[in-house]
Lab assay of single mutants.
Amino acid sequence: MQGVVKVNSALNMRSGPGSNYGVIGTLRNNDKVEIIKEVDGAYEIRFNGKVGYASKSYITIVN
């Protein structure tokens, strides 16, 4: 499943599905991501070869 990031500035990509996990990357508006699955209000995603988590509130599914 594919998604597009929709933010005003940037969205943190984290090592786990919550803000208490470390930041492993930054997503920008209109970045395209692969959605692997939904976990606790976040999506597990793949972006630029990395797998991490981002809030589903800022990712629009575009299948």
Rank of each mutant, 00 (worst) to 15 (best):
I61K: 06
N12S: 12
R14M: 11
I36P: 00
N29V: 05
V51Q: 09
T60F: 15
A10D: 10
G18D: 10
N29M: 08
G52I: 03
V33Q: 00
N8M: 11
K6C: 14
S57P: 07
Y53A: 01
I36F: 07
S19Y: 12
S57Y: 14
S9H: 14
K6Y: 08
T26M: 11
K50P: 00
N48M: 12
N12F: 13
L11T: 10
V51S: 08
L11A: 11
Y53P: 00
G41I: 04
D31F: 04
I36D: 01
S57A: 14
P17W: 07
V39M: 09
A10V: 15
N8I: 12
F47D: 00
R46D: 04
I24M: 05
N29L: 08
G18I: 02
A42Q: 15
M1E: 06
D40H: 10
I61V: 12
P17R: 04
N12T: 12
E38N: 03
T60P: 02
E38G: 04
T60H: 14
E38S: 07
Q2I: 15
N30Q: 08
M13Y: 06
I61C: 08
S55C: 14
V4N: 03
M13C: 06
G25I: 10
G18L: 04
N8K: 15
I35E: 00
Y58V: 06
G18E: 06
Y53F: 12
V51M: 09
L27Q: 00
N29H: 09
Y43L: 04
G52M: 03
N12K: 14
N48W: 06
R14G: 03
S57T: 12
I36G: 02
A42D: 15
R28C: 14
K32D: 04
R46P: 01
L11W: 01
S19T: 12
D40A: 11
Q2V: 14
A10F: 15
F47Y: 09
K37T: 10
N8C: 15
G3K: 01
N20Y: 10
L11V: 15
G49A: 05
Y58M: 08
G18A: 07
G41Y: 08
K32Y: 12
K32N: 08
R14P: 02
S9E: 12
D40C: 14
I61L: 11
E34R: 06
R14I: 05
S55Y: 07
A54P: 01
V7K: 09
G16V: 04
K37N: 12
Y53D: 01
A54R: 01
A10R: 14
Y21C: 15
S15N: 09
R28P: 01
A42F: 15
M13K: 01
I59N: 00
K56G: 04
N29W: 07
M1W: 13
T26P: 04
G16Q: 05
Q2M: 15
S19R: 13
A54T: 08
L11Y: 04
S57Q: 15
F47A: 07
I24Y: 01
K56A: 09
I45D: 00
I24G: 01
S19V: 12
I36N: 03
P17H: 05
V5A: 03
L27G: 00
I24C: 06
Y21R: 05
V5W: 01
E38R: 03
G49L: 04
V7N: 07
V7C: 15
R46C: 13
G41V: 04
K32H: 11
V23T: 08
V39Y: 10
D31Y: 05
N48I: 04
E44R: 08
N30A: 07
K50Y: 07
F47E: 01
S15D: 11
N8A: 13
S15T: 09
Y53K: 01
N48L: 09
D40K: 10
D31S: 06
R46I: 13
N30C: 13
E44K: 13
E38Y: 05
V7E: 03
E44M: 15
G3T: 02
A42E: 14
G3M: 02
I59A: 00
F47P: 00
M13I: 15
T26V: 14
F47M: 04
V7H: 10
D40L: 11
S15P: 03
S9M: 11
D31I: 03
A42K: 10
K56I: 09
G52A: 05
P17N: 06
G16H: 08
S55R: 08
N20R: 11
Y43K: 00
N63I: 12
L27D: 00
L11P: 02
V23I: 13
G52C: 04
L27I: 05
R28Q: 12
D31P: 01
Q2D: 07
L11S: 04
N12M: 13
I59K: 00
E38D: 06
N8V: 13
G52F: 04
T26Q: 12
S55F: 08
G49N: 09
V4L: 10
E34K: 06
E44Y: 14
G52S: 02
G25T: 10
S19Q: 12
V39N: 04
Y58N: 11
R14C: 11
R28E: 08
G22F: 12
E44H: 10
G52R: 01
K56F: 03
V23S: 07
S9R: 14
V7Q: 03
Y21L: 04
Y43Q: 00
G22C: 14
N63C: 14
Q2Y: 15
N20D: 12
K32L: 14
T60D: 11
V5D: 01
Q2H: 12
G3E: 01
V23E: 04
N20F: 10
